[in-house]
Design a binder for these strands. Sequence first.
DNA 1: ACAAAAGTGTTGAGCGTACACCCATGG
DNA 2: CCATGGGTGTACGCTCAACACTTTTGT
Lengths: 254, 254
Amino acid sequence: MVLSGGDAAFRVSVDVVALTVLDDRLSVLVSRRAEPPYRGRWGLPGCDLVHDEDLEATARRALRERTGRATSSARIEQLATYGAPRRDPRRRTVSVAWLAVLPVLAEPGGGRAWKPADRLLASGRLAFDHGRLLADGVERARAKLEYSNIATAFLEPEFTIAALRGIYEVVWGHRLDAGNFHRKVTRTDGFVEPTGRRRQTGRGRPAELFRAGAEESLHPPLTRRSFEQRSVDLGSPVRRHPARGAGHGLVRGA
Amino acid sequence: MVLSGGDAAFRVSVDVVALTVLDDRLSVLVSRRAEPPYRGRWGLPGCDLVHDEDLEATARRALRERTGRATSSARIEQLATYGAPRRDPRRRTVSVAWLAVLPVLAEPGGGRAWKPADRLLASGRLAFDHGRLLADGVERARAKLEYSNIATAFLEPEFTIAALRGIYEVVWGHRLDAGNFHRKVTRTDGFVEPTGRRRQTGRGRPAELFRAGAEESLHPPLTRRSFEQRSVDLGSPVRRHPARGAGHGLVRGA
DNA sequence: ACAAAAGTGTTGAGCGTACACCCATGG
DNA sequence: CCATGGGTGTACGCTCAACACTTTTGT
């Protein structure tokens, strides 16, 4: 860190890949750009770094401005920094990207929307290099489900094991065995802790409610590896409930 | 990413946590600062971002300037970005940190040195927030040994399985069973591939030489988890050869 | 009574650990 | 010949995938 003779200075911004699960799809918060460059394309929430504000505080501010909510409960972590010389055609900009995971919120409105991540990626209609940011964020989330309790951040403070399983199924894109998942989750120290309450789900036996445990990292991890060798249909959501009218049950496991 | 009315601009720098294994110790490249701030402390190699240069190119430049060598062979990956308002007392600076892993090079000279990472961390005599950068870099390296082939980046292109095991032992700080390690490494697809050559090591049966395989990520991973429950002596290096004169053999496994 | 969802039991395959043992070389 | 390090064989224990089965509700 040598102080150069000159004083080259750059714009520094923060962009947030905010993920949630909405209608059984992994979805990301974007807003349609009203101004050039990339007018009409979708952009991730972001804002410029300002004097005396921490990077993480800046990311939380970007998220708060776009969701219109207090986001102190959102789980947030740094993703990576993107600084290719011409990634912003106006001016050289170094952007620190953050991954945020949060439970479903009200629709944000005002040109902003939760859009399915896979569709948005496939459409190629993201501004700047936000397609890469989103892809990196999704991959990070997928990986972290294996060895951290980040899945609980997609849910309200109290949740059922089935709801937690639903997060894994949607983010990983394949179904999991309910029984084995239940055992694995409840027996991994610090992953979830029982509240003693139950939830009426409608049909079926009422499920116990849990909250996130103290342990951030899971040992041993859950593994998606063994499933990846199987074909995964990325084009359609993992339907967690049979389509109305169509009576075909979904196969379990292989 | 909204263009603010003002034009706040920041110094952007790149710092490199360059790791190697020297004398059975995980070591990091540092240079003694000749100028304030932090005169006399140890600093990581770094340089300022300049117009039209990629972040990764900047990191490689910093490494090259400090090692005096072509470092195209070094494995390099982004670590994290540090931007606390007063991390540099002179001017607000956002620093993108990179992790580099490379084989032992000649001593760099000129106030630069390879220093054992653990001692340097314990001494607290690093400049700026470089202690945190170093701690994060070491933890990243430790974690990546589990599920990537990054250990091969510490070695020359051709190496023995025992040398590879030595990297794991030094970085993780405990000994591994030689037989099981050999089996695990040679049977994990894409980790290493045989060259057909052998190396005369002096004593003992000559070891086969391998080179790094094509696969970046290991499935299934090696695991340090099972060892973490055991006590680990962080204060002294894992001696891979018995001390001269002291005839005590090191126990294997538990 | 039946369907559906929650949760438990059971079993077989695979993997990791521990450690015995053989191989190939230097002294 | 022995010592040393390279490399293989083997057995035990644990975990996980698969799936049968029981529990508890709504209709």
